[in-house]
């Protein structure tokens, strides 16, 4: 799953959340480079990249924004394929956005099983007074599906780095497990390359 380069690991992380939950601000806040203005102007929010160092290992996060509107529902699997992690964002003042998160979790689980590390972000904690999703419910739900729950605010820059660090940690852990059992997994996934390379070439094709 996770591609390794000489220096470390590459992970694909999909970002899910309804339009108004602030998922874009959240991730933009995370990847911004305060030392380089140019970075911001060339920014597009649909594909972002962040590099970390964890215990001397380089971790490269490719963060994919996913079309989340209902009408694009059928396209989800095209985006999720081969992802190592997912961040599901809801707005704590909007209960519907939390319900939507639940349906994505189901879909991701159905498609990728436990191969994907999940984070659920309750965003906009700066609007705590208007909260409509109870902390206890959200945390209990996250625990029940093996996801980690985080309280975030893009506005106050709270909880974001912690969330990505935790996700990276878990993705690293699961790759280490993977590496140990890679031979059994290779056949499980559509790892076309490995299977095909083993085959003997047919010389000259069909002629």
């Amino acid at each position: 799953m996770a591609a390794s380069s000489a220096g470390g690991k590459n992970f694909k992380v999909v970002l899910l959340g309804e339009g108004c939950v602030g998922k874009t601000s959240l991730v933009l806040r995370y990847v911004e480079n305060k030392f380089n203005d140019k970075h911001i102007t060339t920014l597009q929010a649909s594909f972002l990249n962040k590099k970390l160092n964890i215990g001397g290992k380089r971790v490269n996060l490719d963060i994919w924004d996913t079309a989340g509107q209902e009408r694009f529902h059928a396209l989800g699997p095209i985006y999720y394929r081969d992802s190592n992690g997912a961040i599901l964002v809801y707005d704590i003042t909007d209960e519907d956005s939390f319900t939507k998160v639940k349906s994505w979790v189901k879909e991701l689980k159905k498609m990728l099983g436990n191969d994907i590390s999940l984070c659920i972000a309750g965003n906009k904690i700066d609007l705590e007074k208007q909260r409509n999703v109870s902390v206890a419910d959200a945390e209990a739900y996250a625990a029940s599906v093996g996801a980690k729950h985080f309280h975030t605010s893009a506005k106050l820059n709270k909880g974001i780095e912690e969330m990505f660090l935790d996700l990276s940690k878990r993705m690293l852990e699961s790759t280490f497990l993977d590496d140990g059992a890679s031979s059994s997994r290779a056949s499980k996934h559509k790892s076309v390359t490995i299977v095909e390379d083993a085959e003997e070439p047919k010389s000259g094709g069909c002629c």
Partner: peptide
């Protein structure tokens, strides 16, 4: 090229648009 990176993302976005 990697399926994860920006080029991979472009291909997936086009595939999604085509399916749509």
């Amino acid at each position: 090229s990697s399926k994860h990176d920006n080029l991979g993302y472009s291909l997936v976005t086009f595939t999604a648009a085509m399916e749509y």
